[in-house]
Structure formats: C-alpha cells, structure tokens
Amino acid sequence: MPSLKPLRVSEETQTGAQTATLTERPWNVVVWDDPVTPMSVVVVILRKIFGFPNNKATQLMLTVHHEGRAIVWSGSLERAQGYCVKLQVAGLLATIEQDA
C-alpha cells in the first residue's frame, strides 16, 4: 500500500530547493568606463556577445560613459563568469558582483 509520507517529504524538499533558488541573489556582470575605449567599440562588443539590439547596446554604453559603470547582465554565477570572460577577452574592463 503506498504511503503518502515519503511523497510529502519529497515535496517539502523540492519546495525548499525552489525557495533557495528563488531567493539566491543573482550575479551581475558590470562593465566599467575607461578614458580611451571608443564608444562604437563598446556597442559592437555588447551586440556581439549578448545579441543585444543596437539601441539597447547603445543605451548601456551611454550608462557606462555617464555613470562610470553599467550592469549589462544578471543571473547565475556560472553564466555571469562566462559573459565576464568574453567581455575581458574583447578588451573591456568587466567584473562580476553579487546583487546587493
């Protein structure tokens, strides 16, 4: 005869895991300003790496230029590291940080 108890335990475990996943703070990929990188180069790199449309890439580039930095992507640690590496390989000053 099947028992409901193991199922309830399993459900609780699953719910707990889901809650942990949902409440875990995301990781941000941050691009930093520098005094020499041409604006059009930043736009090309953001379009190429993230597949952003031109207007979104331009808006992010302007945020970097005016505010000194911009969060260009947020999500899991593994993917944030991957994107940060691609940005660094393309020569931009980029880091990751966990969302406050």
Binding site: V36, V44, G91, L92
Partner: peptide, 27 residues
C-alpha cells in the same frame, strides 16, 4: 575581423593600464 577588434582593444587597454592612464586627466 572580430579577432582583430578584440586584440586591438586588449592592446589599447593593456597599454593605458601599464602607463597608469586610467583617467581623462592622466591621459
């Protein structure tokens, strides 16, 4: 062309970093 762009940009950033030219004033 992407390899050229990336490598030129890496060179530009590495050059200014090595020279300590990380602000418009220093530049």
């Amino acid at each position: 062309a992407w390899a050229w762009l990336c490598t030129l940009q890496v060179a530009l950033r590495a050059f200014i970093t090595a020279k300590g030219l990380l602000s418009a004033d220093r530049l």
